[in-house]
Design a binder for these strands. Structure first.
Length: 572
RNA sequence: GGGCCCGUAGCUCAAUUGGUCAGAGCAGAGCGCUCAUAACGCUUUGGUUGGGGGUUCGAGUCCCUCCGGGCCUACCA
């Protein structure tokens, strides 16, 4: 048994995530966690909300509530949606937790003591009307290059030229529109990650099995220009982890907080601590996942994230860990994803374009979404959601192939033998061939799952489902029943057992349907079919079952057309 | 501007380090079956691998170039 630590990139607190966000981190992480648990491994699966930063403060102000209250409310919303999608986190934490405050300040102090933090005085734009310093992209103005009037302080969207906020003509606050802007001096802590460049590069170079997407982004940052640059890790905000605290090796940081990207990854650790506290466990119960001096040497740590998160997970967070000089766990494997597009364009949170998690669950159960999203995960390039493709995949794979298999077997048995596993007959050549075939297909499935090749794994699973229909067609119990009922009984006994086997191997992808299948088979034996032959004798003759409700319904053309129109733009 | 990724059958995607007629699923066509959610099984039609050039005994794979799409570019997260 191995020990596997799995973290999903933590979703930002601000608003409800769309399906592209879901498939880029939380959902594949859940698939992997469920699979590894099913294989008997000890798993710690961690996620949380990322709550600090300017957008959270602004969203709270817009909602007319204190930021802490807003975050608490949105955490509950996201938690409920995560539960709705069956995301099996061992703990869904909050980056605003007390545990994260303690750890974030701890890491900062260690980095400071190790000479890796520097106080830098710099000039930033301050908005008097808003009473806050403005991040570059919260400043709007006219582009000096092309004359576009809504250029942002970091880049002009129209001509793509990169800008400094002071380049803008008639700059104004993007928040209030106020033109009362001043350049003010402010002091910030910088993480001197340039000093760790060689160590980081050696470390990245050792990861020869990582996806190209992951390593190429890391290398770009390591080599771009003068190489890895130092990075400001504090901000002039109210909401966050205070940068000035008891024991801090610097002064004058009162009123400042750590940058959200400094404390967010630390929340992976903090959330594990939150988990231990919530369970009433000891310090060592969470440290054994994170500290190699506390029993984490044998832990394999896997992170899941979208490509936009890669620089922070390959460089700045590892720099934080390495720079601490303490034996915290570094990531062993990063699985990164491209983006999922929506019907010819991008999902857009601001425009409400695409399907969001709450909307998805309001029209179809989670398993339908899980299956489509995972079997089309954007692993090698950006991929695309279309309603036509969604309808066809769900109807064919889930309803016709898997759902109908369960239906035809259970209904045939009920009508010919009653609602119990029939006795009599024996396995022949066809059964031996099926078992050999299943053994191979399951092994292929396991290999893809172990390698986190999600699309390939879904294809292998579909092939396992297909094997059942192929077998039924060639064994033809409906024909055998007329001349040799015992033979038909043997076929159906195996087929009913096959339903239980399908429930077990399919559970990582479609946990709710799998639970229904097990329930219909009146079984709670969810042990992995290490040996298909014996797995198919789990339900003995005489064992009762129930014909289940339709496992998956089909999506009609009318529904597809309606949804296509409903989600084309503008969220209500 | 710089960097990276991608372009393969009508659609969604595969093709170990360059190595036998470029493969699946879906859609299409034909046949079979009738237990089942008009479901299932079998067979089968689709490709000058975006265009052009080059290296090689051999290129979807490597190099150059052009076209098209996407991402990142360090103060959104």
């Amino acid at each position: 048994m191995a020990r596997i630590l799995i973290t999903s990139a933590i979703p930002y607190i601000n608003g409800i995530k769309h399906l592209g966000n879901l498939v880029g981190s939380q959902l594949p992480a859940d698939l992997y966690a469920r699979y590894m648990r099913a294989r008997g491994h000890e798993v710690m699966f961690i996620c949380a909300t990322d709550e600090h930063g300017t957008p959270a403060e602004l969203a709270a102000a817009k909602a007319g509530m204190p930021v802490a209250e807003y975050c608490a409310k949105m955490w509950a919303v996201q938690k409920e949606l995560a539960d709705g999608f069956g995301l099996s986190f061992d703990h869904f934490g909050r980056s605003s937790s007390e545990q994260n405050r303690i750890l974030t300040q701890h890491f900062a102090r260690r980095l400071g003591e190790n000479g890796l933090i520097e106080v830098v005085t710099e000039k930033q734009i301050y908005s008097v009307a808003d009473g806050r310093f403005l991040p570059d992209r919260y400043i709007e103005g006219t582009c000096p290059n092309c004359g576009y009037e809504k250029a942002r302080g970091d880049q002009c969207e129209n001509c793509t030229k990169q800008l400094e906020p002071t380049d803008l003509i008639e700059p104004r606050s993007a928040i209030s529109g106020s033109t009362e802007l001043e350049v003010r001096e402010t002091r910030h802590l910088y993480l001197r990650q340039s000093r760790l460049r060689d160590r980081l590069e050696t470390w990245i170079d050792s990861k020869t099995d990582w996806p190209v997407l992951t390593t190429s982004i890391a290398r770009k940052w390591l080599h771009d220009g003068d190489g890895l640059q130092d990075r400001g890790i504090t901000r002039d905000l109210d909401w966050g982890v205070p940068a000035q605290f008891e024991g801090a090796p610097w002064e004058g940081m009162e009123g400042k907080v750590f940058y959200v990207w400094f404390d967010a990854p630390i929340e992976y650790i903090a959330a594990t601590w939150e988990w231990a506290d919530a369970q009433g466990l000891s310090d060592n119960d969470w440290k054994r996942w994170w500290r190699s001096d506390k029993g984490a040497e044998d832990v394999r740590y896997v992170q899941f994230m979208g490509k936009d998160n890669v620089p922070f997970h390959t460089l700045s967070f590892p720099a934080t860990i390495m720079g601490s000089g303490e034996p915290w766990k570094l990531v062993d494997y990063i699985k990164s994803f491209n983006y999922l597009n929506y019907d010819g364009g991008q999902f857009s949170t601001s425009q409400g374009r695409g399907v969001f998690m709450d909307q998805a669950l309001s029209i179809l159960p989670a398993d339908y979404w899980r299956w489509w999203l995972l079997s089309h995960a954007p692993e090698n390039s950006d991929s695309e959601f279309t309603w036509e493709n969604f309808q066809v995949s769900v109807n064919k794979d889930l309803a016709d192939v898997l759902g109908n298999f369960v239906s035809r077997v259970t209904k045939f048995c009920r009508s010919k033998f009653g609602e119990a596993v029939p006795a009599g007959g024996a396995w022949g050549e066809q059964e031996k061939a099926l078992i050999r075939d299943l053994g191979q297909r399951i092994r292929t499935y396991e290999q893809h799952m172990d390698a986190m090749e999600i699309r390939k794994a879904s294809g292998a699973l579909r092939a396992i489902w297909g094997a059942g229909n192929e077998y039924l067609q060639s064994a033809a119990p409906w024909a055998a029943f007329k001349t040799d009922p015992e033979r038909a009984a043997a076929i159906i006994r195996l087929s009913l057992n096959l339903i239980r086997l399908y429930a077990v191997v399919s559970a990582p992808f479609i946990p709710d349907a799998s639970a229904k299948m097990l329930e219909a088979m009146h079984s709670d034996d969810d042990s992995w079919p290490e040996d298909p032959g014996s797995a198919l004798t789990t339900l003995p003759a005489g064992h009762g079952f129930t014909v289940p409700e339709m496992l998956f319904r089909k999506i009609t053309d009318e529904e597809r057309a309606e949804w296509q129109q409903r989600f084309a733009g503008r969220r209500d």
